[in-house]
Simulated scan of single mutants.
Amino acid sequence: MIDHLQSAALKELTEARKSMRERGLKVYENRKTKLGVEVGFLCRGYHHKLSMLWGLIEAEIEQKSFSYLGLNIEEKVALK
């Protein structure tokens, strides 16, 4: 199961990086803080910043994991 999750995540990451390259997006700064992750990136010559809180990151990871396994996250309670 873990191998399947890793393969699915790596495939999506590869596709995302390819898409970013095609669109001219370049990440030049990536910092982990107590509150979350802060990213600086370049898009069409303009500098931008993006911040994500740890709670949102955890929720996204959980949702993606369920999706990769073909499970419905709404049925999460039934799995406990």
Rank of each mutant, 00 (worst) to 15 (best):
I2E: 05
I2F: 12
I2T: 04
H4L: 08
H4Y: 05
H4E: 07
H4N: 08
Q6R: 13
Q6F: 09
S7D: 12
A8C: 10
A8V: 04
A9T: 08
L10W: 11
K11T: 09
E12H: 05
L13V: 09
R17D: 14
R17M: 15
R17V: 15
K18M: 08
S19C: 05
M20C: 07
R21H: 08
R21L: 11
R23V: 02
R23P: 00
G24N: 02
G24S: 04
L25Q: 01
L25N: 03
K26L: 12
K26T: 09
V27K: 01
V27F: 07
Y28W: 12
Y28V: 15
Y28D: 14
E29F: 10
N30E: 13
N30S: 14
R31E: 08
K32V: 08
T33M: 09
T33L: 13
T33R: 13
T33S: 14
K34N: 13
L35S: 15
L35W: 10
G36I: 01
V37T: 04
V37G: 01
V39H: 02
L42I: 06
L42K: 04
C43I: 02
G45Q: 09
Y46I: 02
H47A: 14
H48N: 15
H48L: 15
K49C: 04
K49Q: 12
L50G: 06
L50M: 12
L50P: 07
S51I: 07
M52R: 14
W54F: 04
G55W: 06
L56W: 05
I57R: 02
I57Q: 05
A59S: 08
A59N: 04
E60C: 11
E60A: 13
I61G: 01
I61D: 01
E62F: 03
Q63C: 08
Q63F: 07
K64M: 11
K64V: 04
S65K: 00
S65G: 01
S65Y: 00
F66T: 05
F66E: 00
S67A: 07
L69N: 00
L71Y: 04
N72V: 01
N72Q: 07
I73V: 06
I73W: 00
E74G: 03
E75W: 05
K76T: 05
K76Y: 06
K76A: 11
A78I: 13
A78N: 10
L79P: 10
L79T: 15
L79N: 11
